[in-house]
Design a protein around this nucleic acid. Structure first.
Lengths: 187, 187
DNA sequence: AAACGGCGGAACGCAACCGTTACGTCGTAG
DNA sequence: CTACGACGTAACGGTTGCGTTCCGCCGTTT
């Protein structure tokens, strides 16, 4: 039976290495060194780098995030923005996600895994958030959850993970107002 | 005197390799092979991989894009969205940019170069687009160009370069409406 | 005609990793 | 108490790339 503590050490080492050097430069030997573990322990669990990373990443990605339900659309939206922006401020998210996204552009298997995780979350959030708002009459019938989610997550991701500019105090507030207005306008 | 045609062949090879394998896995030897050139020709021009890539990328990034001026804000916006979305559909942009962005998260020199290019373009676009609209009275005084640009580019980048979902015919139209509404609302 | 210099090609020693194997240790299940 | 199996270590041959060097070729300049 494989030892659980060793597996945990390896998983942590993989996440750290991913954040530090990225998928492309991640080597099994470095993971073993960092985990304080023999290479054999790794090859006993996974047969190569891709399989290892995919299994570990899928696992993390599938952790469900709690969906907001504060009673009003603007409340839900503000909470969602807070959750996402907090998550994107952490190194694990802001380094690993763009790295894997770039990697996904040339590795179909990574792409598939990430897209599945992303789309699942995105749809869940979109449908719940928009569905609730439409049901409450806060947004017009026929609001497209797909476009709505792009409109909400896009700018946040852009600013935090791409442009890497800080979010000032009033940014989220302005942003909430703007997005609410955008969604009321026929999207 | 270094031969210009050789330099061009190398530059093209670098861009192609960047798109195909990314910065992390780009090797001088592969570039030389692809360009049909000796390694010596490369080392005669740049002293290492980072310097080579940075010089070539800066060069490309500094090409000015024409700024839209159609006479109306919605026209400008639609044109801008069209330009950006077309650019992001090309492999060079949709592969290389996310890749370098991810790389920038761990290489300060790359980060600095990209941020400079990005911020310059972003500010130019924002100030011109929003400035014109405010001057025409189409947007309220005090509209924040910074937030506006996030709101415009974010969703597009998210959808095309991150989520990698196609843009349907009516998407840009809906999106234009939404963004216009968003910006009119006090941003 | 001769000198110069950029060129491709080949090889160098060095380093990092790959995936695999053999070995000896140690904790635990039976 | 014994047997099993997961462990770390070390070494294997093979691959890839680094940055450098030397060579002979060839077009340009002088």
């Amino acid at each position: 039976m494989l030892r659980g503590d060793i597996t945990v050490a390896i998983r942590n080492a993989v996440m750290s290495e991913l954040a530090e050097v990225g998928y492309g430069r991640l080597s099994i030997e470095a993971v073993a060194r960092r985990a304080g573990v023999g290479k054999t322990a790794i090859y006993r669990r996974w047969s190569n780098k891709l399989e290892m990373v995919m299994e570990i990443i899928s696992d993390v990605a599938e952790r469900k995030v709690p969906l907001p339900d504060t009673g009003s659309f603007s409340g839900d939206l503000a909470l969602l923005l807070l959750i996402v922006s907090t998550a994107l401020k952490h190194r694990m998210a802001s380094q690993i996600i763009p790295d894997l996204m770039a990697e996904a552009a040339r590795n179909p298997q990574i792409a598939e895994t990430l897209q599945r995780a992303l789309r699942t979350h995105q749809q869940a959030v979109g449908e719940k958030l928009i569905g609730q708002a439409v049901a409450r009459g806060e947004l017009p019938e026929g609001t497209d959850p797909d476009v709505a989610v792009d409109l909400i997550l896009g700018p946040l991701y852009w600013r935090l993970a791409v442009a890497r500019q800080p979010i000032e105090d009033d940014y989220l507030e302005k942003f909430t107002t703007a997005v609410t207005a955008a969604l009321r306008a026929t999207v």
